[in-house]
């Protein structure tokens, strides 16, 4: 009996301390979930539609204050906002936490490690073939604001070395329970100028600037 009570006590403690946390990553436009191939109004009357929004989230960690309480192993997630399977994952928190920290993109060491599998498979269309390196983020679509053929825009953001390093750290305060991380793309379009910033397909200052702008917009929603 005494053992049973002890067991109950322990399992209760463990259950309280080790909890599965669902993480979901979403993209939104004007407060509503983003739909691909759907036209949205931009301030000023222009319209925009997205064909694809894909990005890497890596190196997920949970913090309590300044203390790291959880580090995900082999933490690489290719998120495709149109494919629900890729937007959900689980982390197991062993302690309370009040902050999630992750990276937008792939780090230099991984970018120079040769052929990798899983979400890092270079066949997933997120690896430059003419110049090695992961594309951290692809945002593609069309808008009459773009002075390009078919009004297309293609933002392929990447770069892993020196001043071209495009990976961004993102830290967001969270409350206990499941975490929903949202990327409000209407704010991204308000922060950039599609008339000029419509085609980025190689590492460089353009990709780094857009990556910083994008990373600053991630938010936690409940």
């Amino acid at each position: 009996m005494r053992f049973f009570l002890l067991y109950l006590l322990f399992s209760g403690v463990i259950a309280a301390r080790c909890q599965e946390v669902n993480v979901r990553v979403t993209a939104s436009f004007s407060g509503k979930p983003l739909l691909l191939e759907s036209f949205y109004q931009l301030p000023g009357g222009d319209s925009i539609a997205f064909d694809g929004v894909r990005f890497y989230i890596s190196d997920i960690a949970l913090y309590l204050g300044d203390k790291r309480v959880y580090t995900e192993k082999d933490s690489y997630h290719l998120v495709d906002v149109s494919d629900e399977v890729t937007t959900h994952f689980r982390v197991s928190a062993t302690q309370h936490f009040d902050k999630i920290v992750f990276h937008l993109g792939i780090d230099s060491a991984t970018s120079t490690s040769g052929a990798l599998g899983g979400d890092l498979d270079p066949g997933k269309g997120m690896f430059w073939t003419w110049q090695s390196g992961y594309i951290n983020c692809k945002i593609e679509g069309r808008s009459n604001r773009c002075p390009t053929r078919h009004h297309d825009f293609s933002l392929h953001l990447g770069g892993y070395s020196g001043a071209d390093l495009a990976i961004q750290e993102i830290a967001l305060p969270v409350s206990p329970g499941d975490i929903v991380i949202n990327l409000p793309l209407d704010k991204f379009l308000a922060a950039i100028d599609l008339r000029r910033q419509h085609t980025v397909m190689s590492p460089g200052p353009g990709a780094v600037a857009l990556s910083k702008t994008l990373a600053a917009l991630f938010e936690v929603s409940r």
């Binding site: 970018s111 120079t112 040769g114 052929a115 690896f127 073939t129 090695s132």
Partner: peptide, 14 residues
């Protein structure tokens, strides 16, 4: 342009 032998073949293929 290519940083590792493993990913070299991707360039001529594409």
């Amino acid at each position: 342009a290519v940083n590792h032998l493993d990913v070299q073949a991707l360039a001529p293929i594409a």
